[in-house]
Each structure stands twice: as C-alpha cells, then as structure tokens.
Design a protein around this nucleic acid. Sequence first.
DNA 1: CATCCTTGTTGAACATACTTGACGGCATGA
DNA 2: TCATGCCGTCAAGTATGTTCAACAAGGATG
Lengths: 193, 193
Amino acid sequence: MSGFDVGARLKQLRQKRGLSQRELAKRAGVTNSTISLIEQNSVSPSVSSLKKILDALPVSISEFFAGEEFAKEQVFYRASELTEIGDGKLSWRLVGARRPNRSMSIIHEYYPPGADTGEDMLEHEGEEGGVIVAGTIELSVNGEVQLLTAGDAYYFDSRLPHRFRNVSDSDCVIVSANNPPSFAEGGTEKHHG
Amino acid sequence: MSGFDVGARLKQLRQKRGLSQRELAKRAGVTNSTISLIEQNSVSPSVSSLKKILDALPVSISEFFAGEEFAKEQVFYRASELTEIGDGKLSWRLVGARRPNRSMSIIHEYYPPGADTGEDMLEHEGEEGGVIVAGTIELSVNGEVQLLTAGDAYYFDSRLPHRFRNVSDSDCVIVSANNPPSFAEGGTEKHHG
DNA sequence: CATCCTTGTTGAACATACTTGACGGCATGA
DNA sequence: TCATGCCGTCAAGTATGTTCAACAAGGATG
C-alpha cells in the first residue's frame, strides 16, 4: 500500500551526509533506537518524530516523499516535441508533459508584448521559479511589483498571489519550473503558475 | 517547532471534498475518532495512518506538506544576486540558494567549450530537467547520447547515470531545475545533476 | 413536541511508537 | 591481549496514537 520505502529513504539521506544514527538522533532530539527502527521499517514513525528527524538533516517532509516512482520515460525532447499549452495569446512549451508522475513542470514560456496572466491574481499550491532568458517581464508577487530582465530570476511560494505581464514592446522568454507540477497532459488549467 | 498545522490542512482538504469525518474515515480504513483527533491536533498521526487518510482523498504526502514552510522569503533575484556555484571551469547561477527548504533547485548554467561534468557519470536522487537556451550540449543519459540545441529540452530521473559536455566551440546556456534540490547554500556537492 | 438522522467530540481500553539500557561487532591502539 | 570507542540492533518499559462506544448539538421530518 505504502509503495514508498521510508526506512531506505531516511538511511540514504542520513548516509549521504555522513551522519551516524546516534549523531542524527542527537541533532533531532530523538534516540538512536528510533532512527534504527525507522530505517528498518520496524515502525511507521509519527509525523512529529519524522519532522524532528528531517529538520535535522535538513529536508522538508515534502522533499522526503518526492519522487516515489521510477519509470523508463522519454529523456530528450526536440524543440518541436515540446507540448504546446498556449491559450491563444500566451505560448508555453511544457517539457515532459506525458510523464505520469513527474515532480516538476518545466516550461519554456513566450510572452509577446501585452501578454498577461490576468487581473485576478494566480494562487495555487506549490513553489515556482524561473530565469528570464530574454526581454522584460513585470512580475507581481504578494503585492510587490518588479521588472525583471534577461538574467534575472524569481522564486516564490505559489500560494502568494502572483501575476506575469509583458509591459514592454518585445517578446519575453522565460524558462520556469513548478513543483508540484501545475500541468497534466491535456490539462485544462487556466493559471500557469 | 512544527510550524505546519496538520490538523487544519487535513480539515481543509476534507471539507473541500464535502466529506464528513466518518465518511473519510470509512474510505481510509481508520475510525472517525482518528480524524477528529488529528484535525484538532490532539495527536500527531503516524505516517502510515496519515498515508491511509491521504490516499482516500486522494492527496500525496508530498502535496500535503507542500508549502509547509511559508515564510517571507526573497522572491526577486537580480542577475547579480544569483549564487555563483561554479567549480572553476563550469559556471552556474543558483536561484533561491538561501531558501531553507525549497522544493527545487533552479539553475542558470553556462558551459564554455570543452566544459564537462566528468567521465564518471552523475547519479543521485530526484528528477531534473531543463531547456537549452543557447548553443549546443551533448547530453548522455543511461547510455544514450544526444546533441541538444537551443529550444530543445530534457527531463529524466537523476538516478540514471548522466553527463553534460559542451563539444562545440561556443558557449552553451541552459536553464535547469532539479527536484529535490541538489545544492544547499555553500554546498560542497560535486555533481550538479 | 418527539423521533431519527448526521455531525463532531471525548474517556477508557488497546495497539503502536519511542526510550532506556543493554548487547555483539568491528575497528584503533596501548 | 585487553581496553576504548563508535557502530547498528534489540528487549522491555513508558509514552503516545488509535479504536470502541457513548455523548451532546443541530437539522429534518411528522
């Protein structure tokens, strides 16, 4: 049912940092036995305990449980193969749209002059970030408005009300990433995050 | 310590679906009491219980805890503010490096001619993807080798052995995203995945 | 009004997670 | 060889999560 090896994942993260069970336990405020039992899947930890342990790594619970599936999927995408998800005015190209349970949306976004995600701000779960590759974009997040140009970047919690708008007279190109992914295949999402 | 209201989040998700505590409990294979106590934060559920409940919604644990940390973080990053993480030859700029528990690494990567992530292939947890913004890169994933040029993209499970190499005579620029994030602030990671 | 349903809450019993304190294994070094 | 130290594991006891069963509050029906 679980389908996710909590013990193995914890062990992996702990060892990656070169920590012993006792060392991690000390930092987390639990005992080494707890770590041991969890890593052996002898117990299913309480959320509070798991959080204490992950905080000591540090790894968010969300991260901890990200990436549960591992299938043989398409790796390389020619420009022409990217899934077009524009809505007429805006033009986006989604990488890996057909991956069933991917952990991110990566999008090649084109904002022609005047392009706008709309007056009622976007708000949704997750985080998003990106790099402005060309042109200029006006980004509003949680009331703050900034003009970003090539080389600039952004990263924010997607629950903060936000809006993208090209107020310049030339195209703006952005490569962005969302987590968790906003777009499913053939998705009907309006906002692009 | 927790900083994340498990009870409120569960209640919100349950009510959003119009389910009663008993109804949800029935689907999840737990009792209504469990739901009630969790929603009141009278207990910190075990991961196994929480998973059963979330499966019945259905919501992944990762989703459930997405945005667990919802602090006031930096949103806008000027090109000059991006954290440089090059190793002398390769030059990368990391977006949001100081965010404590961000769910992704977003990186503006520069590969000069001859740049190479190394002969022993990179392998690590997570997924990664990106868009080639300029130039040409040779990407090897799981034995397959492809030349990708501006507009092309990639997405793969980072546990597949992979390598990036600029075999052309001009710079290659990529915007990539990793999940979970490979780089911590001042991280000593060698691979960039 | 009574009756019957559904809602969320709660005390006591029970099941499970967690700690304590021990153990054997495997190094390093006197 | 024996001591020291750190490693992960485990049995027994304690703390905490979960269930069972009862409860009160609110709405709908007659």
